[in-house]
Design a protein around this nucleic acid. Structure first.
Lengths: 228, 228
DNA sequence: TTCTAATAGAGAATTTATTCTCGATAAATA
DNA sequence: TATTTATCGAGAATAAATTCTCTATTAGAA
């Protein structure tokens, strides 16, 4: 095998394929559960069986993180957990501001386990004065007018948008003004941002579409069987 | 061209590729906006430019829905909207029960536009008696013990899980007992369900992983440039 | 009316992702 | 100790998704 550290560095530089990135957290969660039970080793076969994924696929994904296993034994659980953390950047704490202190914002502020992924929502902001000056899950909600200044002062580089679609662009503009590096956008709206800013959209309608079509197919299928 | 109705029927039966399904709602939203402004025609080029997607890809996606366009003109906005609705099954109303009346549940109950996608959350349920007997966004919150019976009575086939991960399986079991056909799971946990039940997981950690790695890469890049 | 430019649609080519195959290795067992 | 079995790792084969190329068509301009 080739120098694996260099290989992983290269993987991080050019980036893993998105499907792989989306599966890594699933492994990560399972591995933590296994560690809880005192398990120290794990094979791709086992992970695949648990998550209903092809074992080879699991192996290829793990390969991306640079973890090496041993024939007949598999991987060291701890080592693998650390490798995934490192690969995803979950080993470094990122402080985030959240824009939009509605129920969705509140839900995210109270989301368990973000800290394990190196994410810490340190404060929330809202345009509505009635929503400000509260403390939700230990975090202060302030007026949006204070955000940009605080961002610069606290060197916050990560923003989460949980405002209605109609206000998403304004929220994004403020984050950009504050020097944001990455935006996690929960509003069902496309937002414009400079090339340098990373934007990831969490669009529920996209997921719903997948589910809706599966359901439509299933219903059509059962109907045609009923007829036949 | 071949009989397009038969073609679309076949597409629905075998299902569109997931990437296509996830893009269709983006087109749908844009098209509705365009219709608002009075536009009646649209080209793949325009859609692609707006959403920063390849025009050919847009064309292929649209082809799946069976909509035909005209050279030099493009597609009829209205026709395309209807075709997407039909293709995704958004033209039929689906009534859903939601389990877990916390802030995430509340956020979904108040989510705008689900009705345009044929989804209607008709009631919510929770184990916590303190959360019950409320009305959120016009929907009643009842105790979980009532759910299974009501599901059968009301013929509810769609369930949304917004409980903590530790309770997700129990929630799913109750939905299954009530005869659920599809589950939209927002808890960061894998749930076991019979083959016949469609489960879609909305796992925030999976999206976060994509964002985290992009950010890690960007930081590594800027650091190496700073050094060089 | 003729020409030009924009577009859909079909199919080929390319890229990306997944799955299969096989050899090497190490633990467990006979 | 020899054999068997489970596993990793590498690479080939396959499948899926995206992008490219070309042709036909049509609206609008000359």
């Amino acid at each position: 095998m080739e120098n694996s550290i260099a290989q992983v560095a290269r993987n991080i530089v050019k980036g893993a394929p998105e499907p792989t990135l989306r599966r890594l957290p699933l492994y990560y969660r399972l591995l933590k559960q296994l560690r809880e039970t005192g398990r120290t080793g794990v094979s791709c076969t086992l992970i695949g069986a648990e998550l209903r994924l092809d074992a080879t696929q699991v192996r290829k994904d793990i390969e991306m993180t640079g973890t090496v296993g041993r024939p007949k034994v598999g991987y060291d659980v701890n080592e693998l957990i650390c490798a995934i953390e490192k690969f995803l950047g979950w080993d470094n704490l990122t402080e985030a501001f959240l824009v939009g202190a509605g129920s969705l914002g509140e839900a995210l502020m109270g989301y368990p386990g973000f800290s394990e992924c190196g994410l810490s929502i340190v404060a929330a902001f809202d345009v509505d004065p009635n929503k400000c000056h509260r403390v939700i899950h230990g975090k202060h909600v302030r007026h949006i007018s204070k955000m940009t200044g605080l961002m610069r002062r606290m060197r916050i580089r990560f923003g989460i948008i949980t405002v209605p679609a109609s206000e998403a662009q304004q929220a994004a503009d403020l984050l950009i003004e504050g020097g944001v590096l990455a935006i996690w956008n929960f509003a069902p709206a496309k937002i414009q941002a400079p090339e340098r800013v990373i934007v990831t959209n969490e669009d529920l309608y996209c997921s719903l579409a997948v589910l809706s079509q599966k359901m439509t197919r299933k219903l059509a299928e059962s109907r045609s069987k009923g007829v036949a």
